[in-house]
Write a protein that binds this DNA or RNA. Structure first.
Length: 449
DNA sequence: ATCGGCTCGCGCAA
DNA sequence: TGCGCGAAGCCGAT
């Protein structure tokens, strides 16, 4: 059973007697622990209809480049084959996602879509909801606690959000029974875009190819689970101690997989709870409280991707210091090319550019320094978000928008006023050195550059 | 090494 | 209305 709080009717149209139940896959690129897929299967079984899964690949997805497409396609290839094992066809169309959903809805009894919280995806959903002639039902499948159940409003900080979501976790963090569709529909013949070979697909698409795919991360549910097993076995015990040390490898590295929905946060959390590791609580804090606080931010704050979305005290103090003299001013190109005077900052930028994932601790330092080394905080915000979305495999994620905003005071508190930063929390290289061997980190980056 | 101050707003207790 | 407290802070005093 899928909890009713995950389910939201996006229009008021009636279920009709169509040929199949359509699942428009958008956020959750997986077949395991996918509540939207399960919901579609259970609806279809009740109506004695087959399930059809649809995915639309557009070349115009904002800020997506070869790095993201390749990782996504590796994951989608796996989705297609595991759906096939369940007797479910996956139809891929090479067009804007909402247009294919509308076309395929014409023969559907109803359409299910998974949950997403960003502007563009919300617009696609509402356009489809009003255009099609059957229900569009959203099932939130990439959070432990559905966003509106966790809190009815934008939260001020982790401290205000934590007690609210903690009370709800038990209600939603449950093992899920997976059902097979009763009606096999593989014989249905759909015109589908071939995604067997990610390399070929990427070269055939007219996308931004200036950011190459990475060697360090490969997409797909199998790869995600392999990494999770390694984390639980070898790293979780030391997570609390070493997670803020970027010279070590003690993070779960789940964020790219979570971003594309290739693994479920519920699946991860249940696996973590099966252990008796001392790192459990610290990790679940990140996976659930912090991650879903970021969903709360993008869901309730329409300006999640700009300076305007910051709390008033932060905007005020940053504006008051916008004209303070800067010792260093770098252009976006110099930052992008890791050409600053600061070897630690450069190392972080190189790590992101080369690996597709910057260490979590360095993301804070990295963002703070962009404020310090650009002309205005408004420009700094744009540059930080641009670089984050371009190079991180988990770019464009609620976590990314929230992480950048945090550097500018979101979910944080004021500190002693100083030049440029005002009352925003300041960070400097001494802090890095206090916590880990920063020169080793810089040296490692030099080797991969 | 450790500690208090910095500073705003939330939310609970009263 | 008062008060405690907060993602990773820094900084100066002891």
């Amino acid at each position: 059973m899928i909890h009713e709080d995950r389910v939201k009717k996006l229009n008021k149209k009636e279920i009709r007697n169509g040929r199949y139940v359509l699942y428009w896959m958008q956020a959750s690129h997986r077949t395991e622990y996918n509540q939207a897929l399960e919901y579609a299967i259970s609806k279809a079984n009740k109506m004695n209809r087959p399930v059809v899964v649809y995915f639309g690949i557009t070349e115009f997805f904002p800020e997506a480049n070869e790095r993201h497409y390749y990782f996504m396609l590796e994951g989608l290839r796996e989705v297609k084959s595991s759906l096939k094992e369940k007797g479910i066809p996956m139809v891929v169309r090479h067009k804007s996602p909402e247009l294919g959903a509308i076309e395929l809805s014409k023969d559907a009894s109803l359409v299910i879509v998974d949950g997403e919280y960003l502007r563009k995806q919300k617009r696609w959903r509402s356009y489809v909801a009003q255009t099609i002639d059957c229900p569009l039902v959203q099932v939130e499948s990439d959070v432990v606690v559905p966003v509106e159940a966790a809190s009815p409003k934008e939260e001020y900080s982790a401290a205000t959000f934590r007690p609210k979501i903690k009370k709800k976790i038990g209600t939603y963090l449950l093992p899920m029974k997976e059902n097979r569709p009763k009606v096999d529909s593989l014989e249905h013949d759909f015109d589908s875009f071939n995604i067997e070979d990610p390399e070929r697909v990427v070269s055939s698409l007219e996308i931004d190819k200036s950011v190459r795919r990475v060697e360090d991360f490969h997409g797909g549910a199998t790869e995600a689970k392999k990494r999770l097993e390694d984390f639980l076995k070898n790293k979780l015990d030391y997570y609390e101690e070493y997670r803020n040390d970027p010279t070590k490898e003690f993070l779960s590295n789940m964020s790219p997989y979570l971003h594309f929905g290739q693994i479920s946060p519920i699946y991860i959390a249940l696996k973590v709870l099966e252990t008796d590791s001392p790192g459990k609580d610290a990790y679940l804090e990140e996976l659930i409280v912090r991650r879903e606080l970021s969903v709360n931010f993008v869901f309730y704050n329409q300006n999640y991707d700009s300076f305007d979305g910051l709390p008033n005290w932060a905007k005020k103090t940053l504006k008051e210091h916008a004209k303070d003299p800067r010792k260093y001013i770098y252009t976006i190109k110099e930052l992008e090319n890791a050409e600053t005077h600061d070897p630690y900052w450069n190392a972080a930028q190189i790590e992101m550019r080369t690996k597709g994932k910057m260490h979590g601790y360095m993301r804070m330092y990295w963002g703070k320094k962009i404020i310090e080394w650009t002309k205005t905080p408004g420009e700094a915000f744009k540059i930080a978000l641009y670089l984050n979305n371009k190079y991180e495999l988990d770019g464009r994620d609620p976590n990314g928008f929230t992480g950048v905003a945090w550097c500018f005071g979101k979910h944080d508190r004021p500190w002693k006023e100083r030049q440029i930063f005002g009352k925003i929390r300041y960070m400097n290289a001494n802090g890095l050195k206090r916590k880990f061997d920063a020169d080793l980190y810089a040296e490692k980056a030099r080797l991969i550059n």
